[in-house]
Amino acid sequence: MKYNNKNQLFMMIIRVVLGVVFIYASIDKILFPARFAEIIYHYKVLPIEMLNIIAILIPWLEAGLGLLLIFDIWTDMASLILGVLSFVFILLIVSAMIRGLNIQCGCFSLDNKESVVGTQRIIEDLIITVGCFILFFYYSRLKPLLT
């Protein structure tokens, strides 16, 4: 595959858009970790003792990796981690839906007007996950992870 300017421009757009999305998604969670911990709790998948530490760390991870994407630093690693995180999040939403939980998603903001878990959230996360993996495959070819 030949990497031309058109491809590079396309990848740059995906990088910046996803970077901004992840940073945007992290702001509320960083500012109000108690609220985010509460949302994680309602998914009922983590031990209670771990809720707070996860609610503290995940938003900063999102923000940090989002910044790396925007500035094209370790993009392969950042996109891989974000892709895996987003995929795990899809699984959590699906599992909540299967269990009939009518809970807040906690995807982008912590606003209670944000819709609860559902198909629309899955589609949004799927688009983000695919975007992350497109970036990973593109950038890991240019700069293999182990070099």
């Binding site: 500012l31 109000f32 970790p33 108690a34 911990a37 209670i48 003792e49 771990m50 809720l51 707070n52 530490i53 609610a55 503290i56």
Partner: peptide, 12 residues
Amino acid sequence: NKISPEGIPVIT
């Protein structure tokens, strides 16, 4: 989290 007024205990 430590300095934030909205900070929470690390262990729930």
